[in-house]
Design a protein around this nucleic acid. Sequence first.
DNA 1: GGTTGTTAGTTACAAAATCAACTATTACTC
DNA 2: GAGTAATAGTTGATTTTGTAACTAACAACC
Lengths: 145, 145
Amino acid sequence: MPDDDEFNLLDFLPYLLNQAAEESSTAFHKVYKDRYGMLRTEWRVLFHLGMYGDLTAKEIALRSRTHKTKISRAVAALEKRRFLTRTRDTRDKRHEILNLTAAGQSAYLDLRSVAQSYHKDLISQFSEQDAKRLRDMLRRLARTD
Amino acid sequence: MPDDDEFNLLDFLPYLLNQAAEESSTAFHKVYKDRYGMLRTEWRVLFHLGMYGDLTAKEIALRSRTHKTKISRAVAALEKRRFLTRTRDTRDKRHEILNLTAAGQSAYLDLRSVAQSYHKDLISQFSEQDAKRLRDMLRRLARTD
DNA sequence: GGTTGTTAGTTACAAAATCAACTATTACTC
DNA sequence: GAGTAATAGTTGATTTTGTAACTAACAACC
């Protein structure tokens, strides 16, 4: 937005980010929905467990900046599909440690490779340097550093 | 994602974009919700009308890449709050031309200035050149060129 | 050791988004 | 000009999300 008076919606960063996010997510969304009947929070939980190993719901909520009720429902759905199991922590019975089952692990690996190929497709339109710049700027905006 | 085997969720572009979008939208969301009781699609409709003048619902749906039912409900809500009026096109009675009322115009101007200031805050953490690069890359990803 | 506070997670109810079917109007085609 | 297709927009049923209140377990304090 170079000029004060000339506001352009298409330059407004939150709008632009939302449009880009939506556009870039659609294709992947279709895959995990069609292939595994998953919702957005469900694949996120799956990926967090697949990437970082066994975690509690709380830890996933923190890492993904997602509200605990969303996580709670996603965990219930994944459990129902036998993609994960819960184990109560004997030391502190409030905590449930979540583990991917073999089926969950295999869904994760499958979707991870899909994600990787979508990512490559998206990023290939930029130079390596620009891709790095983009990633760094988005991380700052997402405050996930 | 430099290495094939080392997938990192925090580098996955659609995820990163979603996180950045959510993070950067929260504060503005609160403003239009608290001040005018608007939803996301409602401010988008308001902004499209404010920026581009009188449009039909269809045109807004196209420009904002939003489903027509969402637009339909947003228009109904804005009409109820007397932020816009509809005029049936006499040439083609299927079209309704939407116009902001004075109240709608004033809400638009108010929110626009809020948006501008949020935008400036967000963008100020980057150099002018990086900001331009970011905008251009996001536009390409959003395919809004 | 009982009261108070905090934390992990769930549930219930209301609000919102999605999807498909619908009406009304115009365009196309024979 | 009758029949079919296409377009603008709405509505209703279902799913998903958001908000707040809830249970259960633990911690801290006196």
